[in-house]
């Protein structure tokens, strides 16, 4: 598959503050790439450079082979966006707003179809100002799709959506992927990224700290299972085939490559000592576990 979004050593500074610090990745046709990272990691900055809204300080970016800052109307015609922060006129109705934006494109989506995609048929005649936050977010998404874009930049497209609307949005995005649209998506919902993304990039403090499929992210501890329980006893844990991870309160988290042996060692030790391992659980590490590991410390610059 052809790469339609290419980012090479992207750097963006605001004054002396480096928001994006040498980030490289790409997105191919028909691929959904999820971008994760704590607040202030540089996700929006990266996406806005790709949208041509911000000029990069260094590095190269290409969207459909064009420099986004110079691609002009030709490029913008093929790109749909949901911005993290932007406005639409509250005085227009939902249908009028979608019609206005669809009118910018030669190959537009019919207004009724766009409304149906985001489940806003009932709100078609309502003023945008009278919509709830989640409904307004769905209008944003409808506007991004009005273009029948080949590339989609979605910056937290489901923030504020109720669970049903979020699932519906996932279906829409999955459908677009099936048609070869390249999607770059940011989200703070790990489940969303797990479900949608073919690949995940994790940003932290302006750098790309991991990249890979959502179920095998971050290398290193990728195969380690997690054993958790609450420590309601004072005895020291015996040595075993595990590594103890930092955890809050009385919770103990052990990472192990060899779950069977570790469980055996742990439970037989507990039985011998007569201690109870409360809430004992063995599970495969989730995307969330790996994400939190990767982005520990240094939040909110």
């Amino acid at each position: 598959m052809r790469d339609v979004i290419e980012v090479h050593e992207l750097v963006k500074r605001y004054g002396s503050m480096t928001a994006v610090d040498g980030v490289s990745f790409s997105v191919a046709e028909g691929e959904v790439v999820g971008m994760l990272g704590p607040n202030g990691a540089g996700k929006t900055t990266t996406i806005e450079v790709l949208e041509g809204i911000r000029a990069p300080t260094g590095g190269q970016v290409r969207v459909l082979g064009h420099d986004p800052a110079r691609g002009g109307r030709h490029l913008k015609t093929q790109v749909g966006v949901v911005l993290q922060s932007a406005g639409i006129d509250g005085a227009l109705t939902v249908a009028e707003t979608i019609a206005l934006y669809a009118g910018f494109y030669r190959h537009r989506r019919p207004v009724a179809e766009a409304l149906a995609e985001v489940d806003l048929e009932e709100c078609a005649g309502r003023r945008v100002a009278a919509l709830s936050g989640g409904q307004r977010r769905r209008v944003d998404l409808a506007l991004a799709l009005a273009a029948r874009p080949r590339v989609l930049f979605l910056d937290e497209p489901t923030t504020g959506l109720d669970p049903a609307a979020r699932r519906r949005t996932w279906d829409v995005i999955a459908g677009l992927r099936g048609q070869g649209v390249a999607v770059l998506l940011t989200s703070h919902y790990l489940e969303e990224v797990q479900r949608l993304a073919d690949r995940v990039v994790v940003m932290h403090l302006g750098r790309l700290v991991a990249e890979g499929p959502p179920d095998r992210l971050g290398g290193g501890s990728e195969l380690a299972s997690r054993i958790t329980f609450r420590r309601t006893f004072t005895d020291e844990l015996p040595p075993g085939p595990w590594e103890r991870l930092a955890a809050a309160g009385t919770t103990v988290v052990l990472a192990t490559e060899d779950a069977t042996e570790a469980m055996h060692a742990l439970t037989s030790w507990a039985v011998d000592r007569g201690v109870e391992l409360e809430g004992l659980e063995l599970r495969r590490p989730s995307l969330e576990d790996r994400y939190l590991e990767l982005t520990e410390g240094g939040h909110d610059r």
Binding site: Q78, Y105, H107, R148, P149, D171, Q179, G180
Partner: peptide
């Protein structure tokens, strides 16, 4: 549910590129 009709396909490249 997941098989619900996908939204309209983007037109073959070449036509969608031309701005209005």
């Amino acid at each position: 549910d997941s098989m619900r009709a996908a939204p309209g396909a983007p037109p073959a490249s070449g036509t969608s590129e031309r701005p209005r």
